[in-house]
């Protein structure tokens, strides 16, 4: 059982890599395709509802979509005081996409990999080498892709709000202020270092928080799946129910922090 279990866990934690020998220039086909599919689900439903949106007598789906949009809109308006056409759609996309990616965790942990193995076997592959990880947000590539995009947005917002010179000046003169020229020159590299740490800490904390939560959640589902089948529900049901909260909360936290970071970027200190 022990080596079997290790094998099982290892198998579950291996990505479907397009070409493991290619180093950086290889793809996680599972992460990419599942998240792309979920992106289509989100964009499709929301665009359909937006296209058919009725002012009077909206249907249930429209009301649900409106509720989500209204929630995001309220948060953005409360936190972000600048004018931007990007931030609200960005926040909505983040929330919905991450939520859908996280929600893949609630599918039975063996369901999609088992289907993939059978399909792979039918296509003549060795089922032991057919890998599929269905939770894209448990892949650092997915979470960092988003958080680094957010970091680029932070830089972009800073520059557009303060100008390249204004932002550069802020990088060199805050958080430590000085009055004399000499002190200013001395403090400039220290300030710059602090600012760089602050700037880099944001995407790292964003993506690692999401990744850690989802990875651990997935791992616990895998461990529960190792129990005898008759007892799995005792732990599996509470964990899944709790996980509904976790996946929503993580999506919300990512969105809120993005809004907060962007509003900090446009406000002058």
């Amino acid at each position: 059982m022990a080596s079997n279990a290790t094998e099982y866990i290892k198998h579950h934690l291996t990505f479907w890599n397009s070409d493991p020998s290619a180093g950086f220039w290889s793809f996680h086909v599972d992460t990419f395709s599942v998240s792309l599919l979920l992106g289509f689900v989100f964009a499709g439903i929301f665009a359909l509802v937006a296209r058919r949106a009725r002012l009077e007598n909206p249907g249930r789906l429209q009301l649900f979509v409106e509720m989500v949009v209204d929630m995001v809109d309220t948060q953005v308006k409360e936190i972000f005081h600048g004018k931007s056409k990007v931030i609200a759609p960005l926040a909505l996309t983040i929330f919905c996409w991450i939520f859908l990616m996280n929600a893949m965790d609630l599918l039975p942990v063996d369901l999609l990999p088992w289907i993939a193995q059978n399909v792979g076997a039918a296509l003549g592959h060795d089922p032991h080498h057919v890998y599929l990880r269905v939770v894209p947000s448990a892949d650092v590539n997915a979470t960092f892709a988003m958080s680094l995009s957010v970091m680029i947005c932070i830089i972009g917002f800073s520059i557009s709000a303060k100008g390249l010179g204004g932002w550069g000046k802020e990088l060199l003169t805050t958080p430590f202020h000085a009055h004399g020229t000499v002190m200013k020159v001395i403090l400039a590299p220290i300030n710059f270092a602090f600012q760089m740490i602050e700037l880099l800490a944001k995407p790292i904390s964003l993506s690692l928080r999401l990744f850690g939560n989802m990875y651990s959640g997935e791992l616990i589902f895998i461990l529960i799946a190792l129990l005898p089948w008759g007892f799995q529900w005792i732990l599996g049901a509470p964990w899944a129910i709790f996980h509904i909260l976790v996946i929503t909360l993580q999506a919300f936290v990512f969105m809120m922090l993005t809004i907060v970071y962007l509003s900090l970027a446009v406000e002058s200190h």
Partner: peptide
Amino acid sequence: FNATLLGQAITFAILVWFTM
């Protein structure tokens, strides 16, 4: 880390643009 990062970032950008 591998090229998935770039792929995801492109997907993300397109999604944001589409939503916008």
